[in-house]
Design a protein around this nucleic acid. Structure first.
Length: 421
DNA sequence: TCTGGGGTCCTAGGACCC
DNA sequence: TCTGGGGTCCTAGGACCC
């Protein structure tokens, strides 16, 4: 049994190219919310040296990057295409684990590596043909090695599939890979590893287990075992329910007005509640955070947060919005300029097993009926953007590189994308 | 002018209980 | 006068991911 990882190539850019074939072969970046920074780059943009997360205003200063095409992100579109890809995968493979919007792990029950490679090549081709999105597949004996294999397919061999099973080959590859690039080793841990003279993934595998467990934690040791071919990260069972739900945004312009900030909090909290109800859950607390802009040294910086425990677990927009506004009152300070705010719902549990008293349960059921009626009325709208449009608030994010809506619709209606049921 | 948004998991330490 | 030890639960903060 092997592990496979399907990874969509330059996913957001590839999605945009579906609707605008003129973007093929050109350097393209997709920008984050508020057109802040690059969050997806075409191979041509990567070749120009535009790093991931590069602030949008710095891109034009990179030599050769004057003609880069920048596009405001459209996450609704990307999520739609992602669902289509995952549903194709779901029909073709065993035990699919959707890991992110553009990645999924699965099990391969082939007798030998050759068969596995053929099967995965057919799978990648099927996805490309039916969605137009190019993907890379990594095959290995553990999930961590499958990640490395798909990385090699993307960056080095430029083939759809790469298999990493032979022990000697694995060792050779691990010597070439920086420990920083291993899945599960982030900035902090790699800094610490560097201080111990560990730079390559291979060096990392040579460290004693006891050292890693005492200096780091069990997850880092698991990563080491996975690199050595011992599978300890299983395919997790599919559970779509979120344990926390966040809506947060950077604002288009700085906001100092309490009413505008409240507008944003109401919209964010409402959006969280809509998501909460869509997974049939209730929340135990609501957490509100606000912060200034650290990049404007001339203004005093302030950031704060406040969590409100709800009287009983609920999915009621009214209840949650009220508490979010109380939380905002607790932390709002007059005279400061705010760049970002967010609302998070915590203590999420199943609505049926929420452990409420009889009275609370009755109240909650009434609220839930009312809310589901409102949800069906609003089924087509987006609470966050509706509120923003109505108030024309300063906090509404900028999207100056948005493709014309008519173009997207025209492509969209003729496309392969699935109808939502 | 201008630097995203949304998640998960682990751990240390405090509170509390017996 | 004398002031333990161990278990469990919760939470804040840190680290990671895409």
């Amino acid at each position: 049994m092997y592990y496979g990882l399907v990874d969509c190539n330059n996913f957001f850019v590839s999605c945009e190219r579906l609707f605008n074939p003129e973007l093929e072969g050109k350097p393209v970046v997709v920008l984050s919310n508020n057109d802040g920074c690059a969050i997806s780059r075409s191979n041509e943009a990567k070749a120009l040296g535009i790093p991931m997360g590069c602030p949008a205003f710095k891109i034009k200063d990179i030599p050769g990057a004057e003609n880069v095409i920048a596009i405001s992100s459209n996450h609704v579109l990307y999520s739609d295409i992602s669902h289509r890809i995952m549903s194709i995968l779901g029909k073709e493979v065993d035990s699919l684990q959707v890991y992110s919007v553009d990645e999924a792990f699965f099990k391969i029950n082939c007798a030998d590596a050759m068969d596995a490679e053929c099967e995965c090549a057919a799978l990648a081709e099927k996805i490309r043909r039916s969605t137009g999105i190019p993907v890379s597949v990594g095959i290995a004996s553990t999930k961590t090695l499958a990640k490395i294999a798909s990385h090699i397919a993307k960056k080095r061999t430029r083939k759809m599939v790469h298999t990493l099973l032979d022990r000697a080959t694995i060792e050779r590859e691990l010597r070439l890979i920086a420990v920083d690039d291993v899945w599960g080793i982030g900035r902090r841990i790699s800094e610490k590893l560097h201080r111990s003279g560990v730079y390559s993934a291979y060096d990392f595998t040579r460290l004693p287990s006891s050292f890693i467990k005492s200096v780091f934690n069990i997850n880092v040791e698991r990563t080491r075992l996975e690199l050595l071919g011992e599978s300890v990260a299983e395919i997790s069972p599919i559970d779509d329910k979120k344990q926390s739900i966040t809506t947060s945004r950077s604002f288009g312009r700085l906001v100092s007005d309490r009413v505008q900030l409240s507008d944003a909090i109401v919209a964010f909290a409402s959006n969280c509640c809509k998501l909460l109800r869509s997974q049939n859950s209730v929340a135990g607390s609501v957490y509100v955070a606000v912060r200034g802009d650290i990049n404007v040294p001339s203004l005093p910086f302030y950031s704060n947060c406040c969590e409100m425990k709800l009287q009983y677990p609920t999915c009621s927009t009214m209840e949650i919005v009220n508490n979010a506004l109380i939380a905002l009152d607790n932390i709002f300070k007059e005279g400061f300029y705010y760049k970002k705010a967010g609302v998070t719902l915590c203590g999420i549990r199943n609505a049926e097993k929420s452990g409420m008293g009889l009275f609370e349960a009755e109240q909650e059921t009434k609220q839930r009926r009312l809310m589901s009626a409102i949800d069906s009325i609003n089924a087509t709208g987006d609470v966050v953007s509706l509120a923003a449009d109505a108030a024309e608030s300063r906090w509404h994010p900028r999207k100056e590189h948005k493709p014309k809506r008519s173009e997207v619709l025209r492509f969209y209606s003729g496309m392969i994308l699935p109808k939502k049921t």
